[in-house]
Write a protein that binds this DNA or RNA. Sequence first.
DNA 1: ATAGGGTTAG
Length: 520
Amino acid sequence: MKAQNLNQIAICAQQQLLTNPNPQLLNPLLSRLTNSKNAFFHLYNQMLSHPFSHNHYTFTHALKACSSHHAHSKALEIHARLIKSGHYVDIFIQNSLLYSYLARNDVVAASNLFRSIPSPDVVSWTSLISGLAKSGFEAQALQHFSEMNSEPRIVEPNAATLVGALCACSSLKTLRLGKSVHAYGVRMIANVNVVFDNAVLDLYAKSGSLKYAKNLFDKMSVRDVITWTTLLMGYARGGYCEEAFGVFNRMVQSAEAEPNEATVVTVLSACASIGALSLGQWVHSYIDSRQDLVVDGNIGNALLNMYVKCGDMQVGLRVFDMIEHKDIISWGTVISGLAMNGYGKRTLELFCRMLVEGVEPDDVTFIGVLSACSHAGLVSEGVMFFKAMKDFYGIVPQMRHYGCVVDMYGRAGLFDEAEAFLRSMPVEAEWPIWGALLRACKIHGNEKMSEWIKGHLRGKRVGVGTLALLSNMYASSQRWDDANKIRKTIRGTGVKKVAGCSWLELELYNNRSDSNYRAQ
DNA sequence: ATAGGGTTAG
C-alpha cells in the first residue's frame, strides 16, 4: 500500500518532469519521497540536472533527507554545492545545514557554521540550543540560550527554544534555571502547548521533584502518550516502582493515551527492578492484547529482562525464543540470567547456540559464561573460555572476568591454580576477589592459603566484608587476639553496615552472620 | 521549506 503510494508519487514526478519541470510543483513531490532514500535521490538528481527545475526549497528537503538517512557525505557534497552556487546566503539553507551537522552530533562544525550565519533567526538559535543539549553539551546549550536572551535582544525565543533549554536543564538537573524557563514560558506561550508542558514535566521528573511533576500532570489540560510515559519514568527512576506501575495501570484504564513501546519498556524495567513478577505478567498480557506491539526488539528484551530479574527462567526462555531478531543484548540477558539463576549447564548450552548462530560474544557475555562455569564447577571449560575470550575474541579481561576465574578455582579447591592465576594477573586483584578466595579457603580448610592472602591484605585498605570474614576466621581458629584486632579496625572504619557494596561483599557479610549464628 | 517532548536492557 505504502510502496504503491511512493510509486505513484514517483510516476507523478516523472510526468511533471516531462511536461512542466517546475520546482513549485516538484518540491512537494520530492518532500513526500523523504522516507525512501533511493526514490528521493533519484528525483533530486533529475531535478538538479535541469537548472530551472530546482530552487532553494529543493536543498532544504535534500538536507533533511540526508539527516534521516545518515547520508553524511551527501550532506557535505550539498554544502559545497550551495556555497559554489550562491544559495548559501539564504537563511533557510543556513538553518538546514546547521541542523544537518547537529543531527550527526558534529558540534564543532555546527558551532563554526552558526558563527558564520550573519543574522541567525529563532530557528538557527533553537537548532543550535537543542542540538547541543541532545549531544551532551548541555552547558554550552544553556550558554547560547543566555547569550540569546542578553541585551540587546535581537531574536526572541519561542516555545521551541524554551523546550531546547528545558532539555538541557533536565539532563543537568538544574532545577532553578529550569523553573525560571518554565515561568517564562507560562507568561509567553499563549495557547496550550503539550510539547512544552512535557519538557517541563520531564525536568521535574528527572530532577526527582515528583510532587511538582504530579502536580503539573494533574493540571495539564492536554496529555498525550509522552506525558504519561514521562511521569511513569519519573517514578521508576526515583525508585517508586509500584507507583510507576500504578501510572501505567491508570493510563490503560483511562484510555486517555495509548501506551507505546517506550511506555511498555519503561514499566517493564520498573517491574524488573523490584522483582514484581505478577505486575510484569500483567504488562505481558497487555502487550499480547495489542496487535501492534510485538515481542521483539526493545520490547522483547525488556520483557525477557523482567522474567530473568523475577527469576522465572522458564517463561524467560520462552520469551527469548519468541524474539525474532535476537541481538547481543537478548543473548547477554538470557545467558547471564541463566547463570544468575543457577543454571550452569544451560548457560553453556545457550552460549554454544549463540556461537552456532554466528553472534559474536562480547565482554558481558563472558561474565555470564565464566560465572556459570564457576558455579557449576566446570573448571576446564572455564579456563578454555577465558583463554578463547582473550586470544580468539581479543577481549581484554576486566576485574569481573578475573574475579570469576579466581572464584572458580577457589570453589573447586584448586588453590595452587588460584594463586598462580592471581600472580599472573597484569593488575592487582580488588578486594572482593580476595574475599571470595578467603571464603573458599575457609570452606576447604586451607590454612596455608589463608595466611598468604592475609599477608597480601596486611596494611591495605580492606572492604568491611573482607575484614569481617577475616575476623571470623581468626575467631573460628580460637585466635581471639587477632580477631579482636580486626573487629576494632572494623569499628574504626565507622561503617555500621555494608552500604553500596557489591553483591559479592554482601554475600560475604551474610556469610559472617551465618557462621556467628552457627557458633552460638 | 528550516527548529521543539518521553524509553530499556545483559
